[in-house]
Simulated assay, not measured.
Amino acid sequence: MSSVQPSSGARVLLPFPPSEIGGLPAGWDTVVWDGTDQEPLGQGLEAVEFFVIPYTFTAAALPVLPRLPSLRVVQSLSAGVDDLLPHLPAGVTLCNAKGVHDASTAEHAVTLVLAALRDIPALVRAQDAHRWARGFQTALADRTVLLLGHGAIGSAVEARLRPFECRVLRLARTARETRQGPVHAMTELPALLPEADVVVVTVPLTDATRGLVDADFLARLKDGALLVNVSRGPVVDTAALLDELRTGRLKAALDVTDPEPLPPGHPLWTAPNTLITPHAAATTSAFRPRAVALVRAQLARYTAGEPLANVVSAGTG
């Protein structure tokens, strides 16, 4: 955690009305910008110290950053901040939204697993064609699920997998013990991949994870294995995945892709055994109340001069 001392008469740039947070400290002022306009409305941006970036509007927010000379804290409403970090002004503290998206993303990950294993897309297409298409499908029960990443979201996925009577393998950057069992280090990944019937990817996008799911990774998976990606598209080598999908050897359920948005005509759209959702895992009714609660807590910490939570990059200088 990192502590940042506010100045008197601070101004906050928020994506929702301050009344939704429960009010601001006396003497504070607010500029409200939800990202839908080209730039924040009103005057006084030079006094903004705390900027909460509107969710899904990071690209629109980047040109705003240089217009905030008093900026001290940027609060993202996304768990991943790989697209924001390179543009962070010097001396500014960046916090992510760890905890806000856990429930929604975990629900979506399990939904993708079940839908892909049971081939729900094919059944929907059969319904559209008024065709009664019966047949045996793969159950999640008795399968082995490898969680690639065991942070907040990976842990939330595991919690939702427990009732399905499947075996769970956990991998993270470093090995550790949890109440549910051991978390294996990434160095053990090559040996564990052949055991997996399903791989759920929840790692953040970093230099170490970019292209992690490459041709060698995929070749180690057993025939018929399912890859589920709810992290970031570039964690997976798209060309390598397409090579496997075209043979019919593997299945994929992707909430994120590389490139993204996936353009019309891209071969992933029509790849066999592939289910695609449009980066929709976190955009649910659970988002806003959790986002508001995080911002409320962070502003309270900032006002009191207490350490901020979820610090990704601590401002220095």
Rank of each mutant, 00 (worst) to 15 (best):
V52M: 07
L112V: 07
S313M: 07
L221E: 01
L275Y: 03
G44L: 11
C95I: 05
V81R: 03
G233R: 12
T58Y: 06
G99F: 06
A297V: 00
R173P: 00
A293R: 13
L88Y: 07
L294R: 06
A219P: 01
F50I: 04
A97K: 00
T174Y: 04
K98M: 07
Q127R: 10
G135P: 06
R288C: 03
A240H: 07
T111E: 02
A286G: 05
A139D: 12
R11H: 06
A47G: 02
P25V: 12
L13S: 01
I53S: 00
A156E: 03
H101S: 08
R170C: 10
A297D: 14
L77Q: 10
R170D: 06
E188K: 13
V73A: 03
S313Y: 04
L250Q: 05
P63N: 13
E107Q: 14
G317S: 10
R134H: 12
G42A: 11
V48F: 08
F50Y: 14
V228P: 00
V203P: 02
Q38T: 13
M186R: 14
I120R: 05
T283V: 13
A309T: 09
T187S: 15
P182A: 14
D207H: 15
T303C: 09
V311W: 08
G248W: 09
P182N: 08
V256Q: 06
T105S: 07
A10G: 10
P234R: 12
V235I: 14
L62N: 00
A304V: 07
R125G: 03
D128A: 15
A239I: 08
D34N: 15
L226D: 06
M1S: 13
L250C: 07
R220A: 14
L71Q: 05
L148T: 02
P259G: 11
L85W: 01
L299F: 10
K98D: 07
G80V: 02
I53H: 00
L212Y: 11
I120A: 12
T257K: 01
Q5T: 15
D37F: 06
T30Y: 02
E49Q: 15
D214V: 11
E46D: 15
V157G: 00
S2D: 08
R131E: 13
A109M: 05
L171S: 01
A253K: 05
R246N: 12
V12M: 01
A196G: 10
T187C: 12
E260L: 09
P194E: 10
V213F: 09
T316P: 01
T202A: 15
L123K: 13
R125Q: 14
R167H: 14
A240P: 07
E260T: 07
R170S: 08
R118Y: 06
T178K: 13
L308I: 04
D258G: 03
V145G: 07
L193M: 10
Q137M: 09
D214P: 08
D207T: 15
G305A: 11
